[in-house]
C-alpha cells in the first residue's frame, strides 16, 4: 500500500498535510538560513510541493527515491522526519547524516531515500542501480529518480535512461521542470520544448503533466509505476512546475520578473488543492486551520530540536569513511579523541 493514496479522502488530506509541511519546513529553513543559524547552501522546494508529494503518493513505503540538491520536499513526501532533517541542516549529530551531509545530502537509505545530491544529474544512474538491485533480486519495488530540467542536459542522465530502457528496469524518471536551470531559462538550455520528448530516443514513454496539480502527478506516476512493476521498463514523467524562491537562498534572481512569479502563484499547488478539498467537503475551513497549526507546531518542534541538538565532536569527522577505519585515518581520529591535537609529524 502506498504511504497515502490520492484515491481516498484521507489520503488526499494527508497529501495536503505533507505539502503544507514541506512549505512550512522550507520557509523556516529559509528564515533560519537568513538568520545565520544554518550554514552552507540551501535550495528551497517552495512552489514545487505537488511534484514530490504526488510522486510519493503513488509509491509504496519500500520503493526507492533518488533526489536532487533541492531535496527537502522529496524527503518529507517520502516520510522522513522533519526533526532529524532540521537537525541535519543545523549540522548536528542527531541529524540524518550525523551532521556530515547537510541540506544537499540528506539521506535515509533504510527508508528508501537514496540521498539528496549536490551533483546535477547524478541521481538517475543511482536510481537505475537501485532498480538493477530490485530486478536482480526479483523484489516487488520500483525506484524513482527526481531530476531537474537542467539535469536533462547531463550526459550521465541519458546513459542511465538508455541503460534502464535497454534492461527494462523498474525505474521512473520524474523531471521537475521548474523553468530554470539555476539562472538560465529552460528554453535556453534545451532544443526540445517538451523535455518528455527526450524519452523517445530510448523508446520509452515520456509524458508531460501539470506539476502544480498533485493529482495529475500522482496519476501519471501511478501509471508509470504499474508499467515498471509489470516488467515493461522505465517511464519519463515531466512535471511542469515553478520554484518561487531563487535557485539558492540569496540568489538575486536577475533572470525573471515579479509578474511571472505571480502568474505561477495564481496556480499555487497548495491553495488550489485546499480549495478543491474544501469544495468537495473533505475538509472544512476550520479543519484546514487546524492542519496549518499542527504543521507549524511540528516545524517549530523541529527547529527547537535542532537548536538543542548536540554539535558533533571533532573526532566524528573521521568516522564513516569506510566500513573499517584504515590506519591512515585512524591516527587522526585517535589524536582528536585524546587531546584534540594532531598526530606526530604532520597534518
Amino acid at each position: 500500500m502506498a504511504n497515502y493514496n490520492l484515491e481516498s479522502s484521507e489520503g488526499r488530506v494527508e497529501a495536503l498535510r505533507r505539502m503544507l509541511l514541506i512549505r512550512a519546513f522550507d520557509e523556516e529553513a529559509g528564515d533560519r538560513f537568513a538568520d545565520g543559524e544554518i550554514p552552507g547552501f540551501v535550495h528551497l522546494y517552495i512552489g514545487e510541493e505537488a511534484v514530490g508529494v504526488g510522486t510519493c503518493a503513488a509509491l509504496d513505503p519500500d520503493d526507492y527515491i533518488a533526489s536532487t540538491h533541492r531535496g527537502h520536499g522529496h524527503c518529507i513526501a517520502k516520510g522522513l522526519d522533519p526533526k532529524y532533517m532540521m537537525a541535519e541542516l543545523y549540522g548536528k549529530a542527531e541529524g540524518y547524516c550525523n551532521g556530515k551531509g547537510g541540506s544537499m545530502h540528506i539521506a535515509d537509505v533504510d527508508a528508501g531515500m537514496l540521498g539528496a545530491n549536490g551533483i546535477v544529474g547524478a541521481g538517475p544512474p543511482l536510481a537505475t542501480g537501485a532498480a538493477l538491485s530490485i530486478d536482480y533480486d526479483d523484489r516487488d519495488q520500483i525506484a524513482v529518480s527526481f531530476l531537474g530540467d537542467g539535469a536533462v542536459a547531463q550526459g550521465q542522465v541519458h546513459e542511465a535512461m538508455n541503460l534502464a530502457a535497454t534492461w527494462d528496469l523498474p525505474v521512473v524518471f520524474v523531471v521537475e521542470n521548474n523553468q530554470y536551470g539555476e539562472g538560465t531559462p529552460v528554453e535556453d538550455q534545451h532544443n526540445v520544448d517538451n523535455l518528455s520528448d527526450t524519452a523517445q530516443a530510448y523508446d520509452i514513454p515520456g509524458l508531460t503533466v501539470d506539476g502544480m496539480d498533485v493529482t495529475a502527478v500522482a496519476e501519471a506516476v501511478d501509471e508509470a509505476r504499474s508499467r515498471a512493476r509489470n516488467g515493461n521498463g522505465p517511464t519519463l514523467v515531466e512535471a511542469e512546475t515553478y520554484r518561487y524562491r531563487g535557485h539558492y537562498e540569496g540568489d538575486e534572481e536577475p533572470y525573471r520578473d515579479e509578474a511571472e512569479i505571480e502568474r505561477w502563484k495564481d496556480r499555487d499547488p497548495i491553495d488550489s488543492f485546499t480549495e478543491r478539498l474544501i469544495d468537495r467537503d473533505e475538509l472544512t475551513e476550520a479543519e484546514f486551520e487546524e492542519l496549518q497549526t499542527e504543521v507549524e507546531a511540528k516545524i517549530q518542534d523541529a527547529v527547537d530540536y535542532a537548536q538543542d541538538a548536540t554539535p558533533p565532536e571533532p573526532h566524528e569527522a573521521y568516522d564513516d569513511m569506510f566500513g573499517e577505519i584504515p590506519p591512515e585515518i585512524e591516527r587522526f581520529a585517535t589524536a582528536a579523541r585524546t587531546d584534540g591535537g594532531t598526530p606526530g609529524g604532520d597534518r
Binding site: L114, A130, A131, L132
Partner: peptide, 17 residues
Amino acid sequence: SEAGFTGAATGAAATGT
C-alpha cells in the same frame, strides 16, 4: 556507457547487491 553502468553499480551496491 561507463558513467551509466558505474553509476548503476554504485546505486545497486547501496541497495543490497
